[in-house]
Design a protein around this nucleic acid. Structure first.
Length: 439
RNA sequence: GCCCUUGUAGUAUAGCCCGGUCUAGAAUUCGGCCCUGUCACGGCUGAGACGCGGGUUCAAAUCCCGCCGAGGGCGCCA
């Protein structure tokens, strides 16, 4: 019997659950055709679902001829259900196979797919992104996003244990004059508005009531960056904590990174195998290198920089070679840091700030924030920002803003490090960059 | 914004440097036929491509120019 509708039919087992069943058990599996191998009077097909593959065998005399006939012409990626009995057979790839008594073809492939479902590597990332949904059906991609899911859970678990409250801040904002990265303008009824590039101001305000907050969300930067580590829409992990100095949140960052690596390593064993990368748990504590030390180290490599100069990508690459793996770059000059960063007590030209590096790759940056509104106002002026644009933000500081610190970490970059891939687009479902808005 | 690389069937590629051998080759995919234990089955057979527009030349996939597309790097990056 061959049908086309789901009707009352439901899956009874996933492919990987069949091995524990007795021979002759009635099962219904649902999934997608991977390959069909015809031999005239005997036709094999491999069906995949989200957990794995299972072989279907249609042999003349064992199974209706029209099922065998139909199956032999199904194209890869077709979505089907097979109802039948299990049979153990050593010649089957998984030791068990299904002899069908009924088949339903939900959706038959008409167009030729751009690549085979079993393909491990397809060179052209653009071809894949054009048909991302099909791309994501490939094993490797499935495993990457399963690992990402494990990582997200580990982050939430850890921060929850440390009494951080998960919050959701607005992504549509009114202020455009925060300096730094360019914002995406949007229409907000009859007003101009922007997509948020960070939860910075909101998460700071939240420390008044909730003390410790975190957010994992998408943010937007209209920078025309063409690199393997920038996206126009990216996922950021942000925390902000009252009554903590920057060294305290560095400790949080260090242990959450180690914890996430440990957790993801343990809970994605099959994923790592499929991806072909073994997650290594980093040694802690991470090395802490001050900006001033970094200048010295670069000087010894014949790279002369004046105090106050920003570290270019090439400089970070040199530092990254000297400090492979994770390390903190701390105590940056005030002038290189945003207006809300707190200076050091013993040297007001230096800030209580840090970046977390993985080699040359910047994973996170954070620091101690100013909580005195007057200081904030004068810092805004120093950086040629208009304090009136920040009135909404500043007024909250008049009601008992505590000392606080925090950081933001790029989740997509963290995933590339975890998985050992060098392009963030591989670890984002539908990446957005200056040249790609679809699909 | 700047720089480098690149564009050949559905896909991934050979050919390009050094123009004629290209009627553009092999793989996979797709169509047809054969096959009762395959497993990316196999065999036979058929179909399918030089991004677009100019130029050089007796002759252009091949050399030159422009456009378009793609990849990467730099810069930018609360």
């Amino acid at each position: 019997m061959i049908g086309t509708e789901l009707g009352d039919l439901r899956r009874t087992h996933y492919s990987t659950e069949l091995n524990s069943l007795n021979e002759g058990t009635d099962v219904t599996v649902m999934g997608w055709v991977v390959t069909v191998r015809g031999h005239g009077n005997i036709v094999f097909a491999t069906i995949r679902d989200k957990l794995g593959n299972i072989q279907v065998i249609t042999k003349s005399g064992e199974c209706e001829d029209d099922i065998r006939e139909k199956l032999s012409h199904l194209k890869e990626h077709s979505s089907i259900a097979v109802v039948g009995k299990t049979r153990k057979n050593e010649k089957s790839p998984t030791g068990i196979e299904i002899v069908p008594s009924e088949m339903r073809v939900f959706s038959e492939v008409e167009k030729i797919p751009p690549f085979e479902p079993y393909a491990k590597t397809v060179k052209n990332i653009d071809t894949r992104l054009e048909v991302r949904a099909i791309d994501l059906r490939r094993n490797v991609l499935q495993k990457i996003f399963l690992a990402r899911s494990v990582t997200l859970r580990a982050l939430r678990d850890y921060l929850g244990k440390e009494d951080f409250v998960e919050v959701n801040t607005p992504k549509m904002i009114a202020t455009a004059t925060e300096g730094g990265a360019a914002l995406f303008p949007i229409f907000y009824y009859n007003k101009e508005a922007f997509l948020a590039q960070s939860p910075q101001l909101y998460k700071e305000q939240m420390t008044i009531g909730l003390e410790r907050v975190f957010e994992i969300s998408s943010f937007y930067r209209a920078e025309k960056s063409h690199t393997g580590r920038h996206l126009s829409e990216f996922t950021s992990v942000d925390i902000e904590a009252a009554m903590m100095d920057y060294t305290d949140v560095m400790d949080v960052l260090e242990s959450i990174v180690v914890d996430v690596f440990k957790n993801t390593a343990e809970n994605s064993k099959t994923e790592q195998k499929e991806i072909g990368h073994e997650i290594r748990i980093p040694d802690s504590p991470f090395e802490r290198v001050s900006y001033t030390q970094a200048l010295d180290e670069l000087g010894k490599m014949d790279i002369k920089l004046e105090f106050g100069e920003d570290l270019q990508d090439s400089h970070l690459r040199s530092l990254g070679e000297k400090h492979p793996g994770f390390f903190f770059l701390t105590d940056w000059p005030m002038k290189l840091k945003p207006f809300y960063i707190h200076e050091k007590d013993d040297d007001p030209t230096l800030s209580r700030s840090f970046d977390l590096q993985y080699g040359y790759l910047e994973l996170s940056s954070g620091g101690r924030r100013l909580h005195d509104p007057e200081q904030l106002k004068s810092r805004l002026k120093e950086q040629n920002l208009d304090p009136t644009s920040f009135e909404e933000h500043l007024k909250t500081f008049g009601w008992g803003m505590p000392p606080h610190s925090g950081w933001g970490m790029g989740l997509d970059r963290l995933m590339t490090v975890l998985i050992g891939i060098d392009n963030v687009r591989e670890v984002v479902l539908y990446p957005r960059d200056p040249d790609r808005l679809k699909p």
